[in-house]
Amino acid sequence: MDGPSFHIVAADAPSRWVVTCDHATNRVPPSVGGGTLGLSEADMARHIAWDVGAGGVTRHLARLLDGTAILTDFSRLVIDPNRGEDDPTLLMRLYDGTIIPANRHADPAERERRLAAFHRPYHEALEALLSARRDPVICAVHSFTPQLRGRPYRPWQVGVLFAEDRRLSDPLVARLQSEPDLCVGVNEPYSGALPGDAMDRHALSRGRLHVLIELRNDLISDEAGQQYWAERLVPHLAGALEDFENARD
């Protein structure tokens, strides 16, 4: 049995915050190549298979914000829940120099099977959580590798990504940039404008308040780092929401 494709923490939490983690684990369900993608343990531990440390940060943030968390329980290499169903990178065959053996010859039927088994149930559950709240606020948590192969080092400790809706991103960036020891990426290490991704689907298209945070994964590779960064981010997230609400009044 593959087990659930996602986990929900504190579904009935009292606050407006819903904290999401699209790439929480590197687990490969048994129905996908017998539980292996044909990669080494070292490759499966890399950022290509999951967002290292993001799941732990997500759980801590939800707890500290009195919110709900939803986390995937399948590797992004099985099928990427942060991509639209028609995105060519939905099922990766080559990622950061590594060939994904179990995906090289995956046909449309296998792609559809993985969508039905993993991708769609996660999005359906996330939408149900959001729809059950009167005015939800989404915080999506991701992590990024300090350096892609053959590419420059990425200096940012934290990045804030957004598309056209900057209602929560702008006050959060301003608060983070007020800390002199933080190197803050604004739409870095890449842009937050990705048609069909999770924020496009659940936030932008529905007018929901949201923010997407990227943390450099060497900073959150262990429990201590995950807790530290969650505790550091919480007052800025809460403050950014307060700034938005005050500006609207």
Rank of each mutant, 00 (worst) to 15 (best):
residue 179 E to C: 12
residue 244 F to L: 15
residue 155 P to Y: 03
residue 218 D to K: 07
residue 47 H to F: 07
residue 203 A to M: 10
residue 200 D to E: 03
residue 40 S to Y: 07
residue 159 G to D: 05
residue 199 M to H: 10
residue 181 D to E: 09
residue 132 A to G: 15
residue 175 R to C: 05
residue 161 L to R: 13
residue 247 A to H: 04
residue 31 S to N: 06
residue 197 D to V: 02
residue 35 G to F: 02
residue 103 N to M: 11
residue 187 N to A: 11
residue 155 P to S: 04
residue 65 L to I: 11
residue 14 P to Y: 00
residue 73 D to S: 10
residue 113 R to P: 00
residue 154 R to E: 09
residue 69 A to K: 09
residue 190 Y to I: 05
residue 55 G to E: 14
residue 158 V to D: 12
residue 246 N to V: 09
residue 222 D to Q: 07
residue 91 L to I: 15
residue 120 R to C: 03
residue 178 S to R: 00
residue 177 Q to F: 00
residue 48 I to G: 14
residue 243 D to H: 11
residue 238 A to L: 12
residue 189 P to F: 01
residue 49 A to M: 06
residue 32 V to Y: 06
residue 35 G to H: 02
residue 28 V to R: 09
residue 102 A to W: 04
residue 42 A to I: 05
residue 21 C to N: 12
residue 2 D to N: 00
residue 45 A to V: 08
residue 138 I to Q: 00
residue 142 H to A: 04
residue 138 I to P: 01
residue 116 A to K: 11
residue 195 P to W: 00
residue 104 R to E: 15
residue 193 A to R: 01
residue 241 L to T: 05
residue 16 R to K: 04
residue 120 R to H: 09
residue 82 N to F: 02
residue 46 R to K: 10
residue 249 D to I: 07
residue 174 A to G: 04
residue 67 G to N: 14
residue 249 D to P: 13
residue 37 L to Y: 03
residue 171 P to Y: 05
residue 143 S to T: 15
residue 67 G to A: 12
residue 121 P to K: 04
residue 126 L to E: 13
